[in-house]
Design a protein around this nucleic acid. Structure first.
Ligand code: FES
Ligand code: FES
Lengths: 150, 150
DNA sequence: ACTAAATAGTACTTATTCGATCCCATATAA
DNA sequence: TTATATGGGATCGAATAAGTACTATTTAGT
């Protein structure tokens, strides 16, 4: 189904929620309650996001998390990458071409191009877009393939 | 890491291989040997692809599989959909909005847009492209993110 | 008619990943 | 000093993916 992991979905939800309330230092507990997610999972995710540099944290009483940058400057691609690692639709797409089954491995080069296309699509959407009531349909004018019947 | 399933990777390999040799009726056995994949798995995949209408089959001696349409008219998006189902990065992206946690579920609408963006990116690449020695970098001229008002 | 070769369909088992939880250390405001 | 919060890691069960096995059906050739 070309799914992102559920944890990644949670993470985007957390980030979007933080984008809504720019008052610094929202606690993991509070976010868990607001999104009805298991608290330990939320805590773990925020740690990951912190390590990736997407959120900043303040320890101790009254502490919590906040977006490291303005919501407009954080893309969903970054959030996904923070949780699942870089976009790599296939195993061989990231280098170490161990599987030299294909003729000269043109396949790998082609997958790289596809990866980049998806990457660009995900970079085009920021957290501010996600927090907005409705994301404007992405403008894909030149990328049109002929419509296909089901 | 935003991976497609390994089986899906196999499937695209199978389709690409068939695009290389347009002589009809390549057997599952032969494809398994050519791609160094386990034969039963290849057989199962080809059945799925057949059910999806992407390959046609001929039973009996001398039979096998072949592309249902010219390679240029089959996109990788279709192959992925045949194995993994429709592109749905998140659970709620496809309807049945059970999780009404978000405010009016703007999130779902936004994920739909992202899904479509990825979908279009995958539709832009055909099997003929994959079979070609090198895929032309996808033309993403119009997909630039521009600041917008709220 | 018989046989070999191939797909069609399904059920089963194993491996891997995902998701959730727990524990303890560290920092900080009150 | 204490309550509260993050930082880091280890662990466990569930869900999913991947591989395997078996039987039935179709078809070309002899
Ligand atoms: S490196 Fe993956 S197909 Fe060649
Ligand atoms: S339906 Fe999924 S977030 Fe609302």
């Amino acid at each position: 189904m070309l799914r992102i992991a559920k944890l990644t979905d949670y993470a985007t939800g957390l980030m979007t929620q933080m984008a809504h309330q720019p008052e610094r230092w929202v606690s993991a507990q509070q976010l868990a309650v607001e999104l009805s997610l298991p608290a330990p999972t939320v805590a773990r995710l925020l740690k990951l996001l912190g390590r990736a540099g997407l959120v900043v944290s303040q320890r101790g009483k009254g502490g919590g998390y906040g977006l490291a940058r303005p919501a407009r400057e954080i893309s969903v691609a970054e959030v996904i990458a923070a949780i699942e690692g870089p976009v790599a639709l296939t195993e061989c797409a990231l280098g170490d071409g161990r599987c030299s089954l294909e003729r000269d491995c043109a396949t790998r080069a082609n997958w790289r191009v596809i990866n980049q296309a998806v990457q660009v699509a995900l970079e085009a959407v920021s957290l501010a877009d996600m927090a907005a009531p409705r994301l404007r349909p992405v403008q894909f004018s030149s990328l049109h393939h002929q419509p296909r019947k089901v």
